[in-house]
């Protein structure tokens, strides 16, 4: 027969054990959440460059929204056309009104999967070569594309970079004959986004 007082002690120690267990469980679950491996930014950077006989044209945009799920490799990349800025106001006007028709098509989007995401080791800082495959929508036209790039793991952040080229004709962007020497048929696109772990 256990004396009453020591019985209480046993009981409370059991309670303690129980609490400990719950605490560990909660920890494990929340730890799992922080490993949900979603990364994102709302201040990603994209630049394009057109090199033609008569002039070079460049535009910048630092309001790119992009999110990447490291466990599946799925990503979304969204760009507002009116957020592109040019050195010359006239070029910006023509870009929006004549070529991209940004009132009609305000967004560009690239949505798909990094097919070799397993190559990226989040636990080891370094630069990893990857390939993004998905649907690229520009000027209301969607095409399946494959884009090579790099993911750099650095201090818990992901620095994603890509350089690729798009043909204006693929996206139904017409360049008048008068300016064929001013605008390249293929535009080089540079992407540089620093993604941070998502809080959600």
């Amino acid at each position: 027969m256990i004396p009453m007082s020591s019985w209480k002690i046993v009981q409370s120690s059991n309670k303690l054990k129980m609490r400990k267990l719950i605490f560990i469980l909660v920890l494990a679950v929340s730890a799992n959440y922080s490993f949900s491996q979603k990364y994102m930014t709302k201040t990603g950077y994209i630049r394009f460059f057109s090199s033609a006989a008569l002039e070079n044209i460049e535009a910048h945009n630092r309001a790119v929204m992009t999110a990447l799920d490291m466990s599946s490799g799925e990503f979304i990349f969204k760009v507002l056309i009116k957020s592109y800025t040019f050195e010359k106001a006239l070029m910006q006007k023509h870009f929006n009104e004549n070529y991209m028709e940004s009132d009609k098509f305000p967004n560009s989007e690239f949505k798909g999967k990094i097919i070799d995401i397993k190559n990226v080791n989040l636990k080891k800082d370094g630069i990893y070569q990857v390939t993004a495959e998905g649907d690229l929508t520009i000027h209301g036209v969607t095409k399946r594309v494959k884009v090579p790039g790099t993911v750099e793991v650095k201090g818990g952040k992901l620095i994603t970079k890509a350089k690729f080229s798009v043909a204006l004709s693929d996206y139904n962007i017409k360049v008048p004959k008068a300016v064929v020497n001013n605008i390249a048929e293929n535009i080089d696109i540079y992407v540089d986004c620093v993604l941070e772990p998502s809080t959600k």
């Binding site: 309001a63 969204k78 056309i81 009116k82």
Partner: peptide, 14 residues
């Protein structure tokens, strides 16, 4: 500011 649009997450003003 200059409103450049809504990207399904945020409205962007520049």
């Amino acid at each position: 500011g200059y409103c450049t649009g809504y990207n399904d997450t945020d409205v962007i003003m520049e």
